[in-house]
Design a protein around this nucleic acid. Structure first.
Lengths: 152, 152
DNA sequence: TCCTACGATGGACTCAATCCAAGTCAAGAT
DNA sequence: ATCTTGACTTGGATTGAGTCCATCGTAGGA
């Protein structure tokens, strides 16, 4: 984390307490916070930080390549600090839980030239969807082989 | 298209002029309109149709599995009527143009069990990004091997 | 310590989407 | 053909996410 702050300062990023707090809030594995969540957590450490400042800092971190935006639903963007390890996302259709995942092989390779329509394709974003273990348990009956209509 | 309307009516979908126009506007290949674009086109045929009705009709078509929502940028959702042929999307980073594409193989197969974290994974959405031919021409100099500084 | 250009603030604003109460109408029943 | 009714449409208000901007504050170099 302090590596990150040093690196950013080395690139001429003026280090303010607000920016430091935003960067610190985003530290960790499998972190995918919305801007409002970042703001809420930053507020715990720096009560007067404004939403605009959080948006500014997040936008700069994205532009600097330190954080990636992910949009897994049609709602708020999420900010993923795991920008230096290429990865994709696995999202629970029930509760929205997000995990970083690493598929086999090069995801770009499966798109044949004939399917590229002359595009210079350079990036792929993949979202896998399904039920997480907790949501699957909540949906399925405990003993699914027994017809509920015949019980009791 | 009339197949679609018949099918929906068979499923108890009350057929109104508004719904008919929304379904007709969405007909075609490589169609990826936003709700506002659908509304604008619907208005040409049915001047008094409201935005709320367009949103309602689109939401119902999605729930019925006849249309899929796609979110290729952080902005408005787009509606893709090509719901019965599984496909992915190729998006131009320059102009936002969207093409439907068909990658090789089963996109789910490349996610190893160890990367599924116990999820029952059932869907994949892939977005390929790159420059379309027109945007690539606009960015590159016409003869890229010649240094512009040495010309003229 | 002082300067100043860059950053932070917060309130107004935009854009996408949803909600709601009241009016309208598709389609089955008579 | 007309009636009836519950589902559909309307448009204005509202919400949620994000951006803009004039003003104030401050990081960090001289």
């Amino acid at each position: 984390m302090s590596d990150l702050l040093e690196r950013l300062r080395g690139r001429g990023w003026r280090l303010t307490s607000q920016r430091r707090v935003v960067a610190e809030v985003l530290d960790g594995e499998h972190v995918h916070l919305t801007a409002d969540e970042v703001h809420a957590r930053a507020t715990l450490r720096l009560p007067e930080i404004s939403r605009a400042t959080v948006y500014n800092a997040l936008g700069e971190l994205v532009a600097l390549g330190e954080v990636v935006e992910v949009t897994t639903d049609g709602r708020a963007k999420r900010y993923d600090p795991n920008a230096h390890r290429p990865h994709q996302h696995l999202v629970c259709s029930g509760c929205g839980l997000i995990r970083d995942v690493h598929p086999d092989g090069d995801p770009l390779a499966v798109l044949p030239a004939a399917q590229r329509f002359g595009f210079a394709v350079s990036e792929v974003e993949i979202t896998y969807r399904g039920l997480c273990p907790a949501c699957a348990r909540a949906v399925l009956p405990p003993t699914p082989s027994i017809d509920p209509g015949t019980v009791g």
